[in-house]
Design a protein around this nucleic acid. Structure first.
Lengths: 208, 208
DNA sequence: GTTTAAATTAAACACTTGTTTAATTTTGTA
DNA sequence: TACAAAATTAAACAAGTGTTTAATTTAAAC
């Protein structure tokens, strides 16, 4: 599978990503993409073969880019608790940087249909999970964390909470009296992040 | 706005719901719905006006049905902790029962475009949040829970985690060695539910 | 049984979709 | 400059979309 794209292709990919994330794959026509990218409608087929393959190219382009920052964390010299804090920062920031492709991946696929193309993404997930395991087991060894943690359920707790919050942005903006996008953004970076950190740490530490 | 539908209309709504949830609104054509419901393609326009209005009718039909079971909980004679357990059971089960419409609501809309039609849903959310507030404040008064809880962030934690888990069903089935849909379903009803309960309770109780 | 309204149908409509064609322009190379 | 490959274009294509029409059947009321 091709993983190198020329400038023109990348230009198209980036604009397509924006449009897909905003309006969805189906609702975004090739003509819309072409107009936004200021190219002829035939160029999409010319460069990528089809609309579907354009999407696949976008997924390949983005997911192969998602390299591992999280692995380094497990070897850093920090409290297990500090590591969890940092881990959540990394999770949230990564999703925010790549929110376009994350939106697309989560909303356009039933996860089953494009499984082959998501292999790269699954590998990233697996590696992240492994790093998380190292961190938590270290915390358990040092007596910080409880022993009966279901580790695979930690990432969906972090990401799920975050996604749900941003997906229902309009609702929460109203609920929390955040009157601008900046205020919403700021709320995420402060209060919301803290909430997730508290949640995960409480889960790891709390003895019932 | 119409809220009462005859048998034929409901039959169409239910089949449309299934198809929308499975394949998405855009990918589901009126002809597909008509074939599945064994009706003429003109009947959708005849009964609902348009495809868009069919969806609106479906949302109205389902959301106005989502009555409040959660309110009763706050007056029951239970531990605050038991109430939280029960609350999460209610949340998860309600989403599972109505997973079709929930999928549609979360995946088809940017939440902003259909705001008027989602008013009913927002009212339900608000009422649920109020009930949750009552329960948590009672728990705080009785000394069970910590005082600095950000209550509005509890529901997105519960629902987000759950949605993320079910949306990425394929991935988690593989990760957790769940080889059938029944096994997955069973995992949700036991281990996964327990995880959410633990998470929320830990968050409410844990003192850092 | 006749009349009237509701329900149902097949066909056509106008429009958008993704894709392909064939002609033209641009670019790089010898 | 001349040539060949790559890039770009406008136009056409076939297929599918949601919707409407006008005719027909069904059902209910008198």
């Amino acid at each position: 599978m091709k993983t190198d794209f020329n400038e023109k292709q990348i230009q198209i990919l980036l604009i397509a990503e924006e449009l897909f994330a905003e309006n969805g794959f189906e609702k975004t026509s090739i003509r819309t993409i072409a107009k936004a990218a200021e190219i002829n409608i035939a160029m999409v087929s010319y460069y990528f073969g089809s609309k579907e393959k354009l999407l696949e190219a976008l997924i390949v382009y983005r997911t192969s880019e998602l390299k591992v920052q999280i692995e380094n964390l497990s070897v850093e010299d920090l409290d297990p608790i500090e590591k969890i804090d940092k881990l959540i920062d990394l999770y949230v920031n990564r999703i925010r940087c790549n929110r376009g492709i994350y939106r697309i991946l989560h909303f356009e696929f039933s996860s089953e249909e494009l499984e082959d193309k998501l292999k790269v993404l699954n590998e990233v997930k697996d590696r992240n999970l492994k790093s998380l395991e190292v961190i938590i087991k270290e915390g358990q060894q040092k007596g910080f964390f409880r022993k009966d943690i279901n580790i695979p359920l930690i990432p969906p707790t972090i990401m799920g909470t975050f996604f749900h919050f941003t997906t229902n942005k309009a609702y929460f903006k109203k609920l929390l009296d955040l009157d601008s996008d900046e205020a919403f953004e700021n709320y995420i970076q402060t209060t919301f992040k803290t909430h997730i950190k508290q949640t995960i740490k409480a889960l790891l530490i709390y003895e019932s």
